[in-house]
Write a protein that binds this DNA or RNA. Structure first.
Lengths: 218, 218, 218, 218
DNA sequence: AATGAATGAGTCTTCATTCAT
DNA sequence: GATGAATGAAGACTCATTCAT
């Protein structure tokens, strides 16, 4: 059973944002998502945030600073949620399901962010590119740590946790992107369930049982 | 055992490119990869292809046309290779391994392309964005078809193949990107093996064995 | 013998500035001198004057008003000093030397002003440009009057005093700028003496033979 | 007797400028002169040169590069003319007169340049400021060398030539600026003569006694 | 076909100035 | 009076694209 995401997700729904910095980030998220970073203009972001163009620069040094701050900020949020979920006492299977489900809920709330997050892999370089890479690595490490801990406890089969952390993240993001962003659907029990099964059997599966597969010629 | 990628990969090694169009695509791949689409300039691409800036426009209508053509072209190649691999008679397990291994070999040869491919998810919109989406969808469908066929034959457990196609592709791309592009390593037996195990148990895994997991409280 | 400049120079040493308007002018002088008028920002000036940015506008209508007021104010000071010096009873030669020496002392105290004064010849136009031109012309006229009077008294040869007033001022400013601002040296007896000789006798005239001038009291 | 300036001045009168780089410099000279460097816009310069805004950047890296190139280029011209004049065999007095007269002719042709030259003393800093300073210093050194040589030959009294080089330049520029730029008059025999007398004999020196100088051929 | 000089639309960014507190 | 957050006008500069050669 999936956890109720609304209970854990950050408490600043649109319309309740008194903080101007947050208003800018929210506007940027939307505009970057719609047009991509380079086709978005600072003026558009300012307009959407209902502030003057110059005001943006009181809160962020540059356009790319907005992007990086946005991603860092959201990744920090989702990382916290994942950690929280990972500590809830339950079975491994349930725990993995909860984490994946929670990510779907988060991405569902921040559909725009998911698109931005996945789009800016190669566009930004230099100092800011490094900050982005660090944020990404931070998230992967969180997953990695959880996997390691479960393997240690014998709850999961032995595998190279860091590689699989990337695989898990890649699988989840790809499905979430397709489902939530491209097809713009709501998080769907069946879809999540399919993804969870794939991931779980992948990380929990018993190799010996599968040797069989390699003997069935086709 | 992994297939020898060199036997199957496209036959236009550098230095053998008579076609100017291909020279442009190759140059664009490198430049886009290094700087990102928006920070790359047509002049750089032309310089790298050793042709005049104006000449580029004899072969491509616009800069974004180069990007889209590049991705379409490479996806067509990799799709053909996947199909080829999928038809080789062997066990399912071996077949999946071969396909994944082959993708690693391809991406290893076209590291630059992998970066470009993953970077431009959200940057391009309009007509060209649609062409990119179609190319991506085409590749997914190829995977989907293979999965469907294996499920039908009873070689894999039942699952929603399209969703899992995204998951597989996402997992593979994420690992390949991290391994080949970010850390710039060569394709590595162990890494590929880890990824294959994850994917195989994921798609072939036996649910019964896992029910257990959900009973182990922690 | 050079006059003691400290005796004649304006009486508002730093630290004793109660007037906020004066604080702004002093800060502006420094900032304009360091960065030039257009690269200076009102905020910097306000910061240096330890007041709020908005407060500046309580004392000056605009940034250019600060510049013009500064120059008008300093020119008024130096004009007064020149007049004062011109009235001290002594020989013409000594009087000219005293005036030039006094200018050096003034510029030495207000190095920053000298740079500002010489830099803004062409940058400001319109109403403010006219105010600057008037201030400059006022200073020239003061010199002109002194020259005229000395010529009348037969203390100097006959020449077109207004033209030579410009020449004198140009020569003095150029040397003072190079010496005090560019090379940041202290006023130097020898340097001033060289300049005075030049002004009095030119490059071909024979100073020794003119000692006579210094014996004619007035 | 003043030399015929038209014979020595550079041979590219307006309207005969085929070179685009020169067209830009000429346009910049005019625009910078009218509005000052910071109030001039690149677009204005381009318009006046009848080229596109972007074209300017094919010839100059930046706006400030235009200014510095302009000043460097003009100073090189005037320096060559001064040297040329300094080598013509005649008396010292005549030579000095010729040099000053020639400067007036040059500035008369390039009134706009004179204003630009005098205006940008303090506005430009960094690398470009240094290039400007070097150009200025180069011109001063040329004068300095001539003075030194004449002193050596005993044609002029002994003085610190470098200081007086600044004084001479300052006096000439100040008078030229007032006469040619501010009052927009043509070079005037009487005005130049007054300035020359001042430079040669100062305000106290006795011109008649020096007639001798004009009889010493060299 | 091939070229690259020329173009100008488009955007980030700065900063003087205002005004609500 | 003092303040500094907010503003938006303005301009340098880039670069995809064109076109005369």
């Amino acid at each position: 059973m999936a956890p109720d995401p609304s209970l854990h997700l950050p408490g600043h729904p649109p319309g309740h944002l008194h903080d101007k910095r947050e208003r800018i980030l929210d506007a940027a998220q939307k505009v970057f998502s719609e047009k991509g970073f380079y086709n978005a203009t600072v003026e558009e972001i300012a307009d959407l945030a209902s502030i003057g163009k110059g005001t943006v620069y009181l809160y962020f040094k540059s356009k790319v600073e907005i992007l990086v701050s946005l991603i860092e900020s959201r990744i920090k949020e989702i990382k916290a949620l994942i950690l929280q979920e990972s500590r809830r006492p339950t079975t491994v299977g349930e725990r993995v399901r909860n984490i994946i489900t929670m990510q779907f809920s988060f991405y569902s709330l921040y559909k725009d962010f998911l698109k931005v997050f996945l789009s800016e892999i190669g566009e930004i370089s230099g100092e800011f590119g490094q900050r982005l890479a660090r944020a990404r690595a931070d998230l992967i490490e969180t997953i990695d740590d959880i996997l390691k801990s479960e393997i240690e406890k014998g709850n999961l089969r032995e595998f190279a946790s860091r590689i699989i952390a990337y695989a898990l993240m890649g699988a989840t993001n790809a499905v979430a992107f397709e489902w939530l962003v491209k097809e713009n659907k709501d998080p769907d029990e069946e879809c999540i369930s399919q993804l969870c099964d794939f991931c779980l059997y992948g990380i929990a599966g018993a190799p010996p049982r599968h040797e069989r597969l390699f003997k069935e010629a086709i």
